[in-house]
Computed example of a mutant assay.
Amino acid sequence: MADLLSTLLSRRDWLLADGATGTNLFNMGLEAGEAPELWNEAHPERISALYLGAIEAGSDIFLTNSFGGNAARLKLHGAQDRARELNRMAAEIGREAADKAGRPVVVAGSVGPTGEIMEPMGALTKASAVEMFHEQAEGLKEGGADVLWVETISAAEEFKAAAEAFALADMPWCGTMSFDTAGRTMMGLTAAELVKLIMKLPNPPVAFGANCGVGASDLIRTTLAFSAAGPERPLIAKGNAGIPKYVDGHIHYDGTPALMAEYALLARSAGATIIGGCCGTMPEHLRAMREALETREPGPRPALEEVVEALGGFSSASDGSGEDAPQRRARTGRRRR
């Protein structure tokens, strides 16, 4: 039997994913340095509200509150022995919310990076990484997740370890990397190199792409690079809602709902099938994105100049492949629409 995500992808030209987890939880009272995953037990009603916010805004997919739910990250909070349990809770709350939606909504089990550097540059072994990701995967599976979703990865070896772990859990999965260093991941991968990596995996994802990064413009440029490489799998675009700024003691993202609506349309025209937001993306952004995708026709593949005109300039002159890109503003001078 096909998984729910694959079924929806076979029926729809696009799917709307969710927005930010951290930004929304900070607005609910999460303190800096606090583990969001512990809220699955301490404040399940707030986690349910997080999920419902995305569902009610029109999301077809939402990610669970389990991004930092691996043993390495939880060890910082003395909760490394509770990884499987906390992931199960995250998915259970999500399963309940999705089942009440009145329409098919995919519960995607979020799996973030371990926070450690893998061998040979660091001390984390492949076996340890696979074990941690597998533990998370089993907890999310037990809680009722439809699909696993590894995100914000920068290293090829960590991405491959997650893929291996998800095969052990016998679960479909999606994967995104963060291209936040002059068009490359922190560990130096380009979009084209991720496509090559995907094509060689024995357990390839249902869909793949990019999340987070710098801003909406950069995310579209990365999506265009994916599309140009000719992948055979659906592409994911989950960009931040603008550029982060420190305002009155808080991080604020300057992307308006109108800007994110334009971003969603450009992401679709650039080749993305699953379109959502990352940091700073709130339900009001998602509603604008959904309306735009439903009411406006897709356009041709956008030129880089069109991306700049609609969303503002790029944070770097290159997408990582060596090709220059137009620059029309400093990062702090974004044009709003």
Rank of each mutant, 00 (worst) to 15 (best):
A161H: 13
A161Y: 06
A162T: 05
A162M: 15
A162D: 07
A162W: 07
A163G: 15
A163L: 07
E164G: 07
E164Q: 11
E164A: 14
F166S: 14
F166V: 12
F166W: 10
F166C: 14
F166Q: 14
A167F: 05
A167L: 09
L168S: 06
L168N: 10
L168E: 12
D170V: 12
P172G: 12
P172N: 11
W173I: 12
W173A: 15
C174T: 11
T176D: 03
T176S: 14
T176M: 04
M177Y: 00
F179W: 03
D180F: 01
T181E: 13
T181I: 08
A182S: 15
A182I: 03
A182R: 11
G183F: 02
R184H: 05
R184T: 09
R184Y: 04
R184M: 06
M186G: 09
M186Y: 11
M187T: 04
M187C: 07
M187S: 07
M187D: 08
M187E: 08
L189T: 09
L189G: 06
L189C: 09
L189K: 05
T190I: 06
T190M: 08
T190H: 09
T190N: 08
A191S: 04
A191E: 04
A191W: 01
A192L: 02
E193C: 07
L194Q: 12
V195P: 01
L197A: 14
L197Y: 01
L197D: 15
